[in-house]
Design a protein around this nucleic acid. Structure first.
Length: 229
DNA sequence: GCGACAG
DNA sequence: ATCTTGTCGC
């Protein structure tokens, strides 16, 4: 897919990165887009070569037929260490490279990580969604920020993830009966309800939605045969 | 200064 | 994320 050329530097320190996040956060659109949402691109990364490079995979999932329609992957040098709150500066370059290779139509991006449920309201889903100017949803396996009570035990049960000042940051969603819930939040150009529905629609019997779960599986496989050669 | 802390 | 085998449960 064609991605906007205007981007910022990635090889910067945490102070500059935080400044970028605060500036870009103001451009995030917390409303739904117009078009039909059928093709979701799940993104995830792994770190081959002892972490010196980042490998990203994009799995384009047909939400109607529940099948993969395309998959691409790319690598980029790892320019940033893992620091909570700055995940996108570590993974976004490789993810954008993988997305550039995608030929099929994509209606939304799905991430393993947070969106606006972030200290400066610009988690990786929001950051990449904004740079691609695409609707994006976030589905993280654990909390980064925000407060919440435990949701009910059944699939579909949810509670609010709230900031100290009461701002709604996301939803703590049970995607499988009696299994640890996931943290869903708006990335860009979506509403929280759309994000929650998308996550539920993309997941059947498992805790994580298919697009990101399959992307995780892919990078693990690729990394594996990268190692044995 | 002391905890918390996506992947 | 990554290092790692078997094992308990649906």
């Amino acid at each position: 897919m064609k991605l906007p050329a205007a981007r910022h530097d990635w090889d910067i320190d945490t102070q500059a990165a935080a400044a970028v996040q605060r500036e870009l956060a103001g451009r995030i659109i917390r409303r739904g887009s117009l078009g039909k949402l059928r093709y979701a691109a799940g993104l995830d990364c792994a770190f081959p070569a002892e972490g010196r490079e980042c490998l990203a995979a994009a799995i384009v999932w047909d939400m109607e037929k529940s099948c993969i329609v395309e998959e691409q992957h790319a690598t980029a040098p790892t320019l940033f260490p893992y620091i909570p709150g700055f995940l996108s500066f570590r993974e976004a370059p490789a993810i954008l490279a993988a997305l550039e290779k995608v030929q099929h139509r994509v209606d939304l991006l799905m991430f393993d990580g947070h969106g606006i449920a972030h200290p400066r309201r610009l988690g990786i889903a929001s950051h990449v969604g904004l740079l691609c100017d695409m609707p994006s949803v976030a589905c993280a396996k654990s909390r980064l920020t925000g407060l919440h009570v435990e949701p009910g035990p059944q699939r579909g049960n949810r509670t609010q993830l709230l900031a100290k000042d009461g701002e709604e940051l996301g939803a703590v969603l049970r995607t499988r009966d009696n299994v640890k819930p996931v943290y869903v939040s708006i990335g860009h150009k979506t509403t929280l309800d759309e994000a929650v529905n998308t996550v539920l629609r993309c997941g059947r019997g498992l805790r994580l939605p298919e697009p990101t779960r399959l992307a995780d599986k892919r990078v693990a496989e690729i990394k594996k045969d990268m190692a044995r050669t």
